[in-house]
């Protein structure tokens, strides 16, 4: 069981993914935009952050950079999620400080595997 922060502006994405992750036994907290995501990440203790890239206020890349810049969140693994999925997006995400990258539509087993890998790395 991991404590996951899901930063996602799309309500249906939030609803669907949070429920699916909860079904797999994870504890999911939700943030609806980049600013809230950064604030909540710094305030709480999360094992992993799932970060949508297309976010209002502060987008996923900027939020990731902010989190990497803050000592309390520097080490928290971040997986970038995007439906955009254009060539170069993955590099851009990794460059911003994400640990991994996944595309929507989410293939849950693949995402779960990535989460497990990152959690195992930090364990």
């Amino acid at each position: 069981m991991a404590r996951i922060l899901l930063v996602e502006d799309n309500e249906m994405n939030r609803d669907m993914l949070s429920r699916r992750l909860q079904r797999k036994g994870h504890d999911v907290t939700l943030a609806v935009d980049g600013r809230e995501g950064v604030a909540m990440a710094r305030a709480g203790a999360y094992d992993i952050i799932l970060m949508d890239m297309s976010l209002p206020e502060i987008d996923g890349w900027a939020a990731t950079r902010l989190l990497r810049g803050a000592p309390e969140t520097q080490q928290v693994p971040i997986i970038a999620l995007t439906a955009h999925a254009m060539a170069g997006d993955r590099e851009k995400a990794l460059e911003a400080g994400c640990d991994d990258y996944d595309t929507k539509p989410i293939e849950l087993p693949r995402l779960l595997a990535k989460i497990d890998t990152l959690l195992a790395r930090d364990a």
């Binding site: 994405n13 079904r23 955009h84 254009m86 929507k104 849950l108």
Partner: peptide, 22 residues
């Protein structure tokens, strides 16, 4: 624009897949 449209269309696909799998 192509990226934006991909995003626009893959987002509902994501919803359909997610809810249907659930």
């Amino acid at each position: 624009l192509a990226g934006e449209l991909r995003h626009e269309l893959r987002t509902p696909v994501n919803h359909i897949v997610g809810y249907t799998e659930m």
